[in-house]
């Protein structure tokens, strides 16, 4: 049993008041940016080899939330993505399906139909994604709509404006309300770390989301730069590790945006393993939100199997 840091011995209750929440979040130990970046960079130099690498590449496939979140999305595009999700490499049935397909709420029914029986989850962004600038009622309706259509995972955005101006209670209440609207669906809370600006804020937002019901905490919408970075993921993983120590509840982490090549994905997995531990090397506890990453994972996987570098034309573009 790990002795808890005094700052996390008592956790805030949802609805316990703005002052208590602020006291808790600002009482968390700080994050030294230089040190956190150095640690992340140090882990990025680790190399894994052979069987482990193959396993890691397939794990990364299984952790992928294959995502399309464009204004130009159509049912045809979503069906194509679902086909890819079920069977990422048509020439090799050994490649596992991805974790989920992530789409806008109106396209959830298409994805649900296309993925029936596959075990691939349908995730939907909701709560006025990506800005989150809508009333709570509209956000909850957005969530209810997606859940009713069959989404089993909901990716919500926090109100960064409220967070940055210190209205933590408001942010927390929204998360708790969305969690309730999710019913059985899993809730991923997008912190949009690129707008939070500091690692101290990333840590606070992580705890705020976890103490208010998040099943996953997620870095980014993919619409803001920078999206996911290794130091940000490091800090979020430290938060889920410490939250698990404090509550025995395991919260997942989703890195979204900016992860395009297998090499980067494996660096993330190293950070996951060294920070939260082997138990987080599981699609139920770690996800990649990505689109172009998948083909690179498949290419590197084939390289591992054949010893020959693969070319992009041998993998399907969807």
């Amino acid at each position: 049993m790990t002795t808890l840091h005094p700052a996390i011995e008592t956790l805030p209750e949802p609805g316990g008041g703005e002052a208590a929440l602020r006291g808790f979040l600002h009482g968390l130990p700080g994050v030294d940016q230089v040190g956190a970046e150095a640690r992340a960079a140090g882990l990025a130099t680790r190399s894994i080899k052979r069987e482990s690498k193959l396993w890691a590449l397939e794990l990364a496939v299984r952790m992928t939330d294959l995502t399309t979140l464009e204004g130009a999305d159509t049912p045809g595009k979503v069906r194509a993505l679902c086909a890819k999700a079920r069977r990422p490499d048509p020439s090799d049935p050994d490649v596992p399906p991805v974790a989920a397909v992530c789409v806008y709420p109106d396209l959830v029914p298409i994805a649900v139909a296309a993925l029936a029986g596959s075990g691939v989850h349908v995730a939907s962004v909701a709560t006025a994604f990506p800005s989150g600038r809508a009333s709570l009622a509209v956000k909850l309706a957005d969530v209810a709509d997606a859940v009713a259509a069959g989404a089993s995972e909901i990716d919500m955005v926090i109100d960064r404006g409220a967070f940055l101006s210190g209205r933590y209670g408001q942010v927390g209440e929204e998360i708790a309300a969305v969690k309730a609207a999710c019913r059985d669906a899993r809730l991923k809370v997008i912190l949009e770390t690129g707008e939070l600006a500091t690692l101290d804020n990333v840590r606070r937002a992580s705890w705020l989301a976890m103490t208010h019901g998040a099943d996953f905490i997620k870095t980014s919408t993919g619409k803001v730069s920078p999206a996911s970075t290794l130091p940000v993921i490091l800090v979020m993983l430290e938060a889920v590790r410490d939250f698990h120590d404090a509550t025995a509840r395991a919260v997942g982490v989703k890195a979204a945006g900016g992860i395009r090549v297998a090499k980067d994905a494996i660096r993330y997995l190293v950070v996951v393993h060294e920070t939260a531990g082997a138990a987080w090397l599981d699609p139920d506890r770690f996800r990649f939100g990505a689109s172009s990453l998948l083909n690179d994972l498949l290419m590197q996987r084939r390289k591992q199997l054949t010893g020959v570098y693969a070319g992009p034309d041998h993998f399907t573009l969807d």
Partner: peptide, 12 residues
């Protein structure tokens, strides 16, 4: 699927 393993195989 190989057994879930995460080992840093020798990388000399």
């Amino acid at each position: 699927m190989p057994e879930p393993t995460w080992t840093y195989a020798p990388a000399p």
